[in-house]
Design a protein around this nucleic acid. Structure first.
Length: 422
RNA sequence: GGAGAGAUGGCCGAGUCCGGUUUAUGGCGGCGGUCUUGAAAACCGUUGAGGGUUAAUAGCCCUCCGGGGGUUCGAAUCCCUCUCUCUCCGCCA
């Protein structure tokens, strides 16, 4: 949620940010009106409540002393009638206000570039040289099938489209990557967390998935429970409704979970292979920091993710997302893209975002400094999506004979195996 | 799944039977001070959150005793309901 004060004092900041996101700014007028009406109603209602409190008090005192109360009784009845109407008004405006506020995207950082779509994103960094093959490189689904480590047909049989099964060394590679990343980041000061994969709607609202993106979530039938689309949701919300002490900050977390996404609206996209699936593994990094250092922490977070990719020897580039492509909750977002030989281009493998106080305000995560409470800043980044890392390894490290070379950093995690197949 | 008990401010914990000087007792912890070369101890003071008004982190006002609803002039206290926690039994990895 954005700071309500922006609507009162700096509405042009919101207007500019919405323009940058290519969102229709005609909603600004209704936002202003509802916000103003709401304050007016609150003011009036509190005046009535205050009157009622003093009358009730006098009522009690008179009764105790045996003084006549009939006039005061009449007054209270009239007041209560007014209040009943006012309560109704207040309730309605509060609902309207809330639904508007929960659907306003975050204010974009000043340095987010203007632009409509992913074409307008800005490349900020490139690392590694895409390998040139002396044979025709295969896509990962063919490599995986040939080696008997990836079975998409069985996944589809067990569940439906966009599900898959890993077998043998494929399953081992998945496990190796999870352990490699968790070790890598916990050595850098991120505390390992194992959270629930199912959370309630309050938790989903805290990080911004609800109410706006309910169509992208799997909901448990008959319950207020949802499958998490990323570990960001449970891990960030560990501190919801808390006031942390200043010396608890910053907090760094790393967490492996399965992630579940409906991928509604992506029909026809990435239909082959396991690039886009309904269930995938991911190690997520979450930071909770003081506002003054969040930009610096964002860069460090990006740097940590890059280092993991470097360690695996996978060529990548970093792009800064333009306004039109930056997610709802993010103020600023870098995507890290890894080289995919079969597509002859870079594909997203991590998203590293600074949410500033947007999630903190929704989830009520605060810290105390000099006796006063402030909202924290939250950040997160994938470190990394396991399925897509596996694709990148299979394709970039494939050999002419159909085998896959295991990157050195992973060999200890693969029971010492240096190749799969071959 | 069955039976019972409970949920109060950072923590512990009174108040609930019998509704109204409770602006929620008290202790611990935190902060400030006195004393001390310094510290501890002791003593004194202070110490919840959110919102409205405001230049204001000053005052004043409103709301909050697990969530929601009800009774009442008035609810932490009475009634209904939901959620969660604990104890015992059953079942189970």
């Amino acid at each position: 949620m954005i700071d309500p004060k922006i609507i009162e004092n700096n509405i042009y900041v919101l207007e500019e940010s919405l323009k940058k996101r290519n969102i229709d700014i005609s909603i600004i007028e209704s936002i202003k009106k509802v916000s103003k009406d709401r304050r007016e109603i609150i003011k009036n209602r509190e005046t009535l409540l205050s009157k009622k409190n003093s009358l009730s008090k006098e009522f009690g005192e008179r009764k105790r002393k045996g003084i006549d109360i009939s006039d005061i009784e009449k007054e209270i009845i009239i007041l209560n009638n007014e209040l009943e109407k006012m309560d109704e008004l207040a309730k309605n405006i509060e609902l309207e206000y809330e639904s508007i506020m929960l659907n306003i995207p975050n204010i974009l950082s000043e340095d987010v570039p203007y632009g409509r779509s992913e074409e307008d994103n800005v490349e900020v960094k490139k690392w590694g040289q895409p390998r040139s093959f002396d044979f025709n490189p295969l896509p990962h689904w063919e490599i995986g099938k040939n080696l008997g480590i990836l079975d998409i047909e069985v996944g589809t049989k067990l569940t439906g489209s966009r599900f898959y099964v890993l077998m043998g060394d494929g399953a081992l590679l998945e496990r190796a990557l999870i352990n490699f990343f968790l070790d890598f980041y916990s050595e850098r000061g991120y505390k390992e967390v194992w959270p629930p994969y199912i959370v309630n709607s309050n938790t989903m609202t805290g990080t911004g998935q609800l109410p706006k993106f309910k169509d992208e979530l799997f909901k448990i039938e008959g319950l207020d429970y949802y499958l998490i689309p990323t570990a960001e949701v449970p891990v960030t919300n560990i501190h919801s409704d808390q006031i942390l002490s200043i010396d608890e900050l910053p907090k760094y977390y790393c967490s492996f979970t399965a992630c579940f996404r409906k991928e509604a609206g992506s029909y026809g996209k990435d239909t082959r292979g396991i690039m886009r699936v309904h269930q995938f593994s991911k190690v997520e990094l979450v930071k909770i920091v003081e506002p003054s250092v969040s930009e610096e922490e964002h860069q460090k977070l990006l740097n940590d993710v890059e280092d993991a990719l470097k360690k695996l020897g996978l060529p990548y580039r970093v792009i800064l997302l333009c306004g039109g492509d930056t997610g709802f909750s993010a103020s600023k977002c870098y995507d890290v893209e890894v080289w995919i030989p079969s597509e002859n281009r870079y594909r997203e493998i991590s998203s590293v975002s600074n949410f500033r106080d947007f999630q903190a305000r929704r989830a009520k995560i605060r810290y105390k400094k000099d006796g006063k409470n402030y909202l924290v800043h939250t950040l997160n980044g994938s470190g990394l999506a396991i399925g897509r890392t596996m694709i990148a390894i299979m394709e970039n490290y494939q050999n002419k004979d159909g085998s896959i070379t295991i990157p050195d950093a992973l060999v200890p995690y693969m029971k010492g195996k240096k190749t799969i197949g071959g």
